[in-house]
Design a protein around this nucleic acid. Structure first.
Length: 583
DNA sequence: GCCGTTTTCGGCCCGACTGTTTTCAGTCG
């Protein structure tokens, strides 16, 4: 095999963004030009959201200043970080600041202004200093620090780990839906909707944002503040309140009049970067967008519906999942937005486990459940021998399964069971199943389950080699990450995608809420490279089959359309595709 | 520090809520 495209460990976009955010924190504490601070944060966001690695762009001599929010200075800094692994400017800044000062910014109630004040007046340089000062009652002497703020800071120190926690989409969404259902029944409530990153279906969310349109006389806010399972009321107002639930989730509710609902929903759906871009565009037209509507001078000219905002610029409506300022606004202006995939486009599920390995239901039960969901086909993909913990199948049991599938296909109407397996990619890149079985399968779903800690080079070579196997169909959960639990393993995703493109392999978007792998950025990248994906649930039980919606949402965040996804194909077309892939 | 049919200066999204103060700065989203 060839090593072409496999690179040595390199600076990731995450690292560059972290450096820029750290600079922003330090400048902020210094009281430097707030717009300069914002420029660093904007650039960090642009870099994090960019589908390609800055390291590669630098290598290719790409002009970084063409990226939004990256000018001459920041392009130079990115290049320096990529080339040297560090940034002299940050090193210098760090020298003039106590090393743990930024930690203080994470305490609720402490922003750059107050951190600066504490540093200057009380020489507080760390969390420890802050705790000592609190104990000694020194904070009372600082102007602007009253009893309530001090209590908030004390409280914040204790719970800061809790506050920093992010929740998976699948954890937050049911809670939000539960609250929406309650609030919709309150007197005077006309609309109640989920907003924020939850509405954009981000894989993890920091809190739950809700927006309600109510009549002037309503008891929506009162009910909100009296929901069961409230740990504490963080903030209470007539139009806006925040509660903290017992499970640690923070929930915001905004109550507005019906005529403002569209503007408010849009405002609190975000993303921030998306909204800022639209607001700037409004300003250029001599108008203003705020959370209450669209304004020309003092005159309100729209905002009842979200569509008003997009109509203002003659652009297409942008679905919440796309509102990340990753180029969607320009596309909407040109009326070139993709038609995002929907759950209804899905005709089958290509990653399903049964009792043959670590699944909980039989092949037949899974097939019948899939039929109830309206599918035409499923692929049964039990684990292979190497994966002992999942009771992987040896050759004998694999053969038995194939026979059972033949029998079931004879017996069942309206659903077709495809023969497959989730085949371990071994450390040397070989597939954990003899060719004699591979040949009998309609497709293979291949994945890494061991040796997650190989070097970037070895892990990438392992996968590239596996893809050379003519029986390789789909690369399952391509980065192996478990959200909040396990980092993705080190692979050169661009090299993997180039190989997938060259070999005609499919990449999976695994719909398990703790995987969602490919992520949004990788999905978009695959689409741009012309690689098709399979959105699959990796179901281990009957209920798991309904996780498809999480995969669909992630795909929509990656701008994926029906045509990009192979399991939107009708059965005959899909079978034809698999036959062609086998050559 | 970025950006540009108001291009190389002078803008930069915008408002609610809190706490502390008495008119506002800081924080937050």
């Amino acid at each position: 095999m060839t090593n072409e495209g496999v690179k040595l460990p390199r600076v990731t976009n995450r690292k560059i963004a972290d450096i820029f955010n750290e600079i922003a924190d330090l400048l902020d504490i210094d009281g430097d030009n707030p717009f300069k601070v914002r420029a660093y944060r904007n650039a960090a966001r642009t870099i994090l959201g960019y589908p390609r690695e800055m390291a590669d762009l630098v290598e290719e001599g790409f002009d970084l200043t063409t990226l939004r929010g990256i000018g001459k200075e920041l392009a130079k800094k990115i290049t320096e970080i990529v080339r040297t692994g560090k940034l002299v400017y940050l090193e210098k800044l760090k020298k003039t600041h106590p090393p743990q000062l930024e930690e203080l910014l994470k305490i609720p109630g402490l922003g750059p202004g107050r951190v600066r004040l504490l540093h200057e007046l009380l020489r507080i340089n760390s969390l420890e200093d802050l705790e000592n000062a609190l104990r000694e009652g020194k904070l009372k002497k600082v102007p602007g620090f009253g009893p309530k703020l001090i209590a908030k800071i004390e409280n914040g120190i204790q719970t800061r780990r809790y506050e920093a926690h992010r929740f998976k989409l699948s954890e937050a969404l049911p809670v939000a839906e539960w609250i929406v259902k309650i609030l919709k029944k309150t007197k005077g409530a006309i609309h109640v909707e989920i907003a924020g990153s939850l509405r954009r279906r981000k894989e993890t969310v920091h809190d739950i944002d809700l927006v309600a349109a109510c009549e002037e006389i309503n008891d929506t806010m009162v009910y909100f503040l009296n929901l069961p399972k409230i740990q504490k009321i963080v903030m209470k107002g007539t139009t806006r309140s925040t509660i903290l639930l017992e499970n640690g989730m923070s929930v915001d509710l905004r109550v507005v009049s019906t005529e403002s609902f569209g503007a408010t929903l849009h405002h609190f759906t975000g993303s921030k970067a998306h909204n800022i871009t639209l607001r700037k565009m409004a300003v250029e037209k001599g108008m203003k967008i705020n959370e209450y509507g669209i304004w020309q001078g003092k005159k309100r000219i729209g905002g009842d519906k979200e569509e008003d905002i997009y109509n203002l610029f003659g652009m297409q409506y942008i679905e919440p999942e796309m509102r990340e300022n990753r180029g969607e606004i320009a596309l909407a202006q040109d009326h070139q937005l993709p038609t995002l995939i929907t759950r209804a486009d899905i005709k089958g599920d290509l990653h399903i486990h049964t009792t043959y390995s670590d699944g909980l239901a039989s092949i037949e039960e899974m097939a019948l459940q899939a039929k109830r969901l309206g599918y035409e086909y499923i692929a049964i993909t039990d684990h292979t021998e190497h994966l002992k913990v999942a009771h992987g199948m040896d050759e004998k049991r694999a053969r038995k399964q194939l026979e059972e599938i033949d029998v079931l296909n004879e017996k069942l109407d309206g659903i077709t069971i495809l023969k497959a397996a989730e085949i371990d990619i071994l450390e040397d890149g070989s597939l954990d199943m003899p060719d004699s079985i591979l040949e009998a399968l309609d497709l293979t779903v291949c994945s890494v389950h061991t040796r997650f800690n190989l070097s970037l080079r070895k892990q990438t070579e392992r996968i590239l080699k596996a893809m050379e196997n003519p029986h390789f169909t789909i690369l399952a959960h391509p980065t192996g990450r478990l959200i909040g639990l396990r980092e993705p393993y080190d692979i050169d995703m661009e090299a993997v995608m180039r190989q997938a493109k060259a070999r005609g392999c499919i990449l999976e978007l695994n719909a398990q809420p703790d995987r969602l792998d490919l992520n949004d950025i990788h999905s978009k990248m695959a689409k741009e490279m012309g690689i098709r994906i399979a959105i699959s649930t990796d179901a281990h039980s009957l209920n798991d089959l309904e996780l498809m919606r999480y995969g669909i949402w992630q795909a929509r965040r990656g701008w994926i359309e029906k045509a990009d996804v192979i399991n939107t194909l009708p059965l005959t077309a899909l079978q034809k595709l698999f036959r062609e892939m086998k050559g």
